[in-house]
Design a protein around this nucleic acid. Structure first.
Lengths: 233, 233, 233, 233
DNA sequence: GATGAATGAGAGTTCATTCAT
DNA sequence: GATGAATGAACTCTCATTCAT
């Protein structure tokens, strides 16, 4: 029996009732931060424009236009383009971590926890495709600013690493180089989703789409099965 | 016996005698393109500057300074910043594909081929860290230009996918969703290396460094072992 | 006997009991204009901020902050930044003129009147250093607005000129080009004080400071003695 | 006999053949700095625009228009508005100092030297009226940048002070508080000229104008005569 | 072939002013 | 009377690109 079948029925992601808060859809029953309404409008516009064009190409004018406010209004609420972007990314990464933590915490078994993590991460990225693009395209760059994002992403990877180590200690997981493995797993799931998103050029990938299931299955297969056929031995 | 031990002695990467051609170290006995000397100087400078700053932040002035040529000279050889960058990326991706193909072609067994691919890709990125940064930070973005790079990266992923399918057909590999799996594998290896490169902040990661072995082992473990301990059954 | 000894004991400046009214210290028993309290608070803040930064660099935000009122409140009481500034300068110049007139009027002898004027002007600038900076840095500029200030400063210079002409007519003063002389005298006293104020960078020059006496002596010496030694003849 | 008659015939200012170099008319047979032609054009335009509007109100666009170059050209030669302005002021103050030094050095007698200084300064300001406005309106302000100008102006005042002290020591001059006196003399001559320039609103004050003589006479009278009539004793 | 001074469209940012509350 | 969020015109500065030499 494949481990990937383990949760097929039982588990429910903490993603119901998700709603847009401050630009990207925040899932997991996350508290709505109460915030000035205009700030939220700007956040949403910023996510869209930054995701479309990347940090450098994004113009404050465009963000203002999309938000339907004057350019000055953005600067009334954010000190600079940089700060707006950072606030965005911080909130994004925090949301990812919150969401995944919440889903993982439902299980105590490392295998189940890892499974939940994979599922949550993929689903989070699908539900927040703009953020996914932004995160993964801006997190790897050499600019000063991007070092901060990598720091925060490392926090997320430590989540993974912790599960791996727990499982190793309890003997339930077979793990070597847990630190490296964590980033490999993060990379596998992230690039897979990103690649899928881009292959849809234009249309948004729907959360109900079968490909979500396919992606989850793929990563689970990678983690919990050997690609070598057992009848090879 | 772990598959990852399979090649420990025997196989030799096609990476000996690598030399810098046009800016990034090109491995695998790749033919030196014969080119105008100035063009090569510019290429090398461009790789460095683009890798340091990303496409948007990189200034033609800086490239000219690093290259030690006048700004006009760059424009004599390249139509635009865009074209210079594209030429760079194209050559980079082509080098990656060449290198990996050459190493994979040494084996006929899908498992060994996959193994060789992993090894080659990781080593290529370590030997060409600047290119690695550039490739992975510029390939995921929504700009027009980046779509072309993704197209070329997809070529590389198809290399992986082909091996997976061959192994599936021959019964040697246990594969589902080979298309998705290919990008997951690419992502795992890429992000792992990138993460390692960035964790060295400042110093360059040496090819002799143990961490290279660690990274190869990590990906192989992910591919060829189940993270579930067999004694779990 | 030097004329500069003439008044050493006897005369008392009209500057006792000076108090701050509308931002700069107003001396000479000047009537407190009864004014809306908020207006005075704003005036005081404005003097400070304008003196620190000059007209152009001064921000309405800063004035509002220093005053502890909302920006809108300033606009409720003053039509514009320009008007606020003009009101300030007008009041400042008016204070200077009032103060000097009052002190001069104590004497009937042109020499004594001139002497009193010098003393009063220097002391006024020392007691209102911020105003002094503002006055002298904003009065000489080519902007439209500054022409108005120059006009008012000319009023002050006419005070000087009148004394000179009176003395000339009565034969008590030896004067040529009284109009030009008036501005030279104004310049000598003003720049001397300003230079002194700036040489104290940071600390405020105290009214009790000896340098006040020194400055008064210096200008008197310039006016009432020849720099040529009499034994030169 | 009045000292102000002393030089009426004999002395010749080092101001013949003056020509514009880098924006303001440089007198005193000063060497033409050999400089890129465009830089000079920009300098001249900058002097004009800065003198018309002051630093803050001056727009780089205007300078570019007046100079007949593109805005970018200014930035090709000067790092910033600030730097352009500083270069201008530095050169201006240096020119003043050079010119005055040269004229003063023709005489050995402190009285004659002081006389030459007055004459040279007034003539310099008349020949470089734009610079005069700029210098005197920007030198007294509280901005960081202006502290540098004051420092340089102090250099000039030290020239005056040195003459005063020399004369005091040789017994030829009757001086008290030479430091303060120096700035008073500077102020008298400067404000006198500035006041005159502004009173011509519109037309340029010509160097041949009688008022130049009047101004020189006025300051000399102030210095070398007592305003008190001798028959007062 | 190579140069680098010149260009100018375009971007981020500032801030006096307004006005609904 | 007082507020402060919102505005948008205006400004400085950047930098890819051009072209005369």
């Amino acid at each position: 029996m494949l481990i990937m079948d383990l949760f097929e029925d039982g588990h429910q992601l903490f993603m119901k009732n998700s709603k847009y808060v401050s630009g990207f859809r925040v899932t997991c029953w996350r508290m709505n931060k109460m915030r000035h309404e205009k700030v939220d409008i700007i956040f949403q516009a910023a996510v869209q424009v930054f995701a479309e064009s990347g940090f450098d190409q994004a113009k404050m004018d465009d963000i203002a236009n999309v938000a339907g406010v004057a350019k000055g209004t953005i600067y009334y609420h954010f000190k600079s383009k940089e700060e707006l972007f950072s606030a965005l990314m911080d909130e994004g990464i925090e949301s990812l971590i919150d969401c995944v933590k919440r889903n993982v915490s439902l299980y105590s078994n490392p295998i189940e926890r890892l499974n939940a993590l994979i599922h949550a991460q993929i689903q989070f990225f699908i539900e927040n495709q703009k953020l996914a693009k932004l995160l993964l395209s801006e997190v790897f760059g050499t600019k000063e600013r991007q070092q901060l994002f990598r720091k925060r992403i490392r926090e997320y990877m430590q989540l993974i690493e912790q599960i791996l180590q727990d499982g190793k200690e309890s003997g339930e997981l077979s793990v070597i180089h847990s630190h490296e493995l964590a980033s490999a797993i993060f990379g596998a799931a992230s690039i897979l989703v990103l690649h899928k998103i881009y292959s849809f050029e234009g249309k948004e990938l729907e959360i109900e789409d079968d490909s979500v299931t396919v992606m989850v299955e793929t990563v689970r297969h990678l983690l919990f099965n050997s690609l070598m056929n057992s009848n090879q031995n």
